[in-house]
Amino acid sequence: MSGPYDMVTARDMGLVACRRCARVWQMDQEVCGRCGAALASRDHTSLSRVWAWLVMGISFYIPANIYPMLSTTVLLRSTEDTIIGGAIELIHHDSVGIAIIILVASVLIPVAKFVAIAYLALSIRRSSDLSAQSRHRLYELVEYIGRWSMIDVFVVAILSSLVQLNVAASINPGVASLSFALSVIFTMLSAQAFDSRMIWDNIKSAKQNRDTAETIAS
C-alpha cells in the first residue's frame, strides 16, 4: 500500500464492491445482499449517461440566459431581467458583492461544471495531463458544488412570493427560471452518473503499460 498505483482494488481480487454501502461480494453477485443496490464492477453505461445528461443540461442553459429570469413592476413600470442583466443592474446599484455571488453561482459555476464533466469523461478514454488524484478532486468538487447553482431559482421564488405589493411593487418569475432549474438538475444527474472508479482504472493501466514497456526495453 505504498503509492496510489499499487493499491489493490476489488476488481483485482475478482470481487465486486457495492458503491452504496462499501460491502464486497463475489464477482457474479448482481444485487448487494446488504443494501439491495445493483452491483457492477464497472458501470459501462456510465459514460453514455454522463454525456446524455450533460447535453440536456447545456441545452437548457442556453434559453436560461436568453429569456428573463424575473420581471419587476414598480408603479406600473415593468422591467424584465435576464441573469446577466440582473447582475449588471445590481452593479449599477452598488451591490457589487451580491452581483458577484449571482454571477459566480449562475454563470461561472454552471459553465465550469459543463467543462469539468466533459473533461473528466474525455479523460477516461484518452490520457490526461492531470493525475488521478487531481481529477478525483475535480470530480468531488463538481459533485459538491453542483447543487449550489439552485440558489438563483430560490431567490426568484422568494422574491416573487414576497414582493406582491399591488401597484407599489411586484416581482414575477420568468420562463428562464424553469429552464435554469432544469439545467442544474440535469447537470447534477450527469455528475451522479459518472463512475469515478474509472479515473483510477485508467491510471493503473497506463502504469502497467509503462511497466511492460520498461521490461521490454531492458
Partner: peptide, 17 residues
C-alpha cells in the same frame, strides 16, 4: 469466504480495498 468478505471495505469512489 463470505464471512471473510464482511471484513473488507471497498472505497465506493475508487474501488481500492
Amino acid at each position: 469466504l463470505t464471512s471473510d468478505l464482511t471484513a473488507l471495505i471497498a472505497c465506493p469512489q475508487c474501488d481500492a480495498i
